[in-house]
Nucleic acid binder design. Structure first.
Lengths: 129, 129, 129, 129
DNA sequence: GTGGTCTAGACCACC
DNA sequence: GTGGTCTAGACCACT
């Protein structure tokens, strides 16, 4: 399903969380789609099932998946609810990263183009929803 | 000089690194300006000198400060050399964060305005350099 | 595993870094091979675990090993990417050392033989990769 | 006379030692030539005279300069005496640096050319002695 | 005074 | 079990 990168220092469970979030956000995984069982994914990635378990718990806590006893885990549909804390944190992080790039000599015009690209491809990719 | 949050899970030394990076990037600290000695800052923040030392070393690795035995630590002037790996990493992070916000229902137009704001205040703040 | 010299002024952690680099460069340690845990090596060398940790972190910065929480530390496979700064620094150091030897009366022909020896044994040792 | 680089981490006195050694070895400073007084050099480099003092002591210990009471310090003539310890240390360092470059992907042929270059320019530069 | 190294020992997060 | 963070306090080298 996806590759882990042990070298980048990120905890394994966090990489799994991020990958699933990416798939859900970009629409690779549709709402209410079943995701692999803990044991299957653990076997496939050859890592400890506890690690998968922890990742799924975190995804559930963040509202990206829900689990049904005896059936498995499924992706949630987006809530369209703006969690103010999370929004503020994300905005601040975006701000910091942009400033760091600018400080390194990245051109503001280049940056604006890059952002527009992201936004337009978002609108495009979401027209079929 | 600044506040630490000892509860949010983020390592103390990392908070210090981020704060200094922010000060340097935003121009609060000018190039080759002396920063507090390891012991002074440790006393001021009432944390262990080793923790400050670790933060300063990390800042040195990342190219934001340099230290001279017997003299002190100083902010580095930016080399304006784009490290491809770092740029790619920052861009990917920006992309992910923006997509996550959009997925949560944040309006693309709102986002564009927010980015423009960052860029214009960057240009403005840098005019006096 | 190896011997330390606590008297020669060279920091212990640096000696460990150099030893591991030597093992990795000469192929004694193969890529992605597990290296001793921080605590084990500390016990074996009868030095403090923090010192080992520092050495491993330095090795990680230099790209020779990577660490995974809960799993251990492993040798990295070389990326074969020539970092211009590092190359220049190494070349300058070689140049300086050679000139110093020549100045001390070491014969240029002798030197040429010595270098050829290094190069040929490098090619030989690497044939099995 | 020369520039100091505070950012590279090397102690200041060591940089001075290395610079003088380089000048003496490459023949920029001829044997028995007078070198600047401690106070003059300190003023010129805007650093503490004690630091110069320490550098000169080290140069004297290594046999590159000698000082005469009331007259100043002068460069020594090369002794042509091979200090076995030093020779072995330098050779090992050359070996290590070459292997590190080769490991990084530097071509052995390229390396051989580089060394030959050093040796031939040494012979050329020394014909006039 | 400055930064840098090291120890002893505690605690946490991850697998 | 693993690596990572932090403290308390000692000692060294450099300016």
């Amino acid at each position: 399903m996806f590759q882990l990168d042990l070298k980048n220092g990120k905890p394994i469970y966090e990489q799994i969380v991020d990958k699933f979030k990416e798939f859900i956000i970009t629409g690779v995984l549709k709402p209410d789609e079943k995701i692999p069982s803990v044991r299957d994914l653990a076997k496939q990635l050859t890592i400890n099932p506890n690690t998968i378990q922890k990742a799924y718990r975190e995804l559930e806590y963040q509202g990206y998946v829900y689990s049904v006893q005896g059936l498995g885990s499924f992706t949630s549909s987006p809530d369209k609810i703006l969690d103010t804390n999370k929004v503020d944190h994300l905005k601040e992080q975006i701000n910091n990263n942009i400033c760091e790039l600018l400080y390194m000599g990245f051109e503001p015009d280049e940056m604006e183009k890059y952002i527009k690209n992201i936004l337009s491809s978002w609108k495009g990719g979401r027209q079929n929803d």
